[in-house]
Write a protein that binds this DNA or RNA. Sequence first.
DNA 1: GACCCGTGGGA
DNA 2: TTCCCAAGGGT
Length: 410
Amino acid sequence: MPDRDLEVGPALLDWYDRHRRVLPWRSAPGAASDPYAVWLSEIMLQQTTVAAVKPYFAAFLAAWPTVRDLAAAPLDDILKAWAGLGYYSRARNLHACARAIVDQHGGRFPPDEVGLRSLPGIGPYTAAAIAAIAFGQRAVVVDGNVERVMARLCAVEEPLPAARPRLHAAMNRVTPQSRTGDFAQAVMDLGATICTPRSPACVLCPLIALCDARRLGLQADLPRKSKKAKVPQRGGAVFIVHRSDGCVLVRQRPPEGLFGGMTEFPSTPWTEQHDAEHSPTRPVGLEKLEGPFVPVGTVEHGLTHFHLTLHVYAIRTDRQSFEGCRWIAVDALAGEALPTLMRKVARFAQGLNSETSTLANTPEPEPQITLPVQSDCPKINLPHPKSQAPNEFRTRHMPQRGRSRTTPSA
DNA sequence: GACCCGTGGGA
DNA sequence: TTCCCAAGGGT
C-alpha cells in the first residue's frame, strides 16, 4: 500500500505545525537550529523524560554556551552538573565528544550521519536525529516513540527488539524528502502525546484513517515486547565518617562503570547476600577505622539491573587521612558530583557534624532505626560551577532520626 | 543478541 | 506496591 506511505508525511507535518510541543531546545518554526543545543538535548533525552531534562539543559547552556566552552571544562565540573540525571557515561561521553569536535573537527559538528556516528555517545538514533534536525539531512530517525508509532501504523506483531529492522524500514518508507527533522519530531511528539504506550488517544490522531492497528483493533496491544526478568536485590553498608569540624569523608568512584567518576561515601561492595545483622565490614581504605559504628538508617534505591538497600552507619573519628579519600564540609556536599543514591545517604550526614552529636541527644520513642527515604528524596542539587544556575535545586528538610544510639552496634 | 548503565513519574 | 517506561549507547 505505497499510497498510504506517501500520505503519512503531509498528514503528520500538518498536525505538527498546529500541535508541536514548545521545548527549550527547539528553534522557532522555520528557523535554523543550533547543532550544539540539538546535540546537548539529544544526549540528555536518551532514556530520560523531557521534564527531567529541562532544568539540566538550561543549566548546561548557561554554564557552557558553546561546544568550545564545554570542551574546555574539567570533566568533574560536567559530572557535578550532570549529577541526578543518571546514566553518567553520557556525561563522560559528552565531554569526550565536545573535545573531539574541537580537536578534530574545528569546533563544528559533522553535518552528516556518518561523521556524527563516529563521535562518542552518538549512536544510530542520535546521529540521525542531529543530521535531520540540525542539518536538514534526510535521515531515518528511530527511537522508542517511532518504534511504537510504526508498530501500530503497520500493525507489526513481531515483538521487540526483533522487530527493529522491520520498524526501521517502515519509518524509511514514510519519511519524506523534505522537512525530515520536523517529521521526525512530529512522530516523536505524536508518540509522546497521542500514540502513547498505554491507552492511545486514537480519536485525536491525525493518522487514524491510515493506521492498521486501529483498523484491526490492535492499537493497545502493540508493540509487543518480550517480558523482562525482575531485578535482583542487593545490599551493602555505607559509612558517614565525620569529624568534629563538620567534615565528612568522600571519595571518587572508578572512572568507568556504575556511577563512574562520581563522588560517593565509602561503602562495602553491594552484594546479593548482604547480611544487615552482620557486623559492618569496613570498606577498602578504611580498614584502620575504629568504631563505634552508629546505625542511622537505610537507603533504598532502584537501579536498572538491581534494587539496592544500603545500611548507613555514622562514625566519628579524629584520624586525619584515609587512603583514596578526602574530607569535605557537609555544607559543601550539595556542590559535589553526588548521584541521587549518594544524595539520599547525604541526608543523614547533616546534623552529624556538631560537637554534641544530635545522635546522642535526641531520645525518640521510635524503636526503629530504619527510615523511609522514598520519593521525596534529596534535592540537594547543586548551584552550578560557572554560572549561578537556576536555583530550582535546593536542599529540603532533614530526615527524622530514629532512636538515639551512642554505643557501638558492632 | 545479551548485558550494563540511573532516575522519577504514572498507572 | 510493583511494574513499566522515557528522544539509547557501549561493550
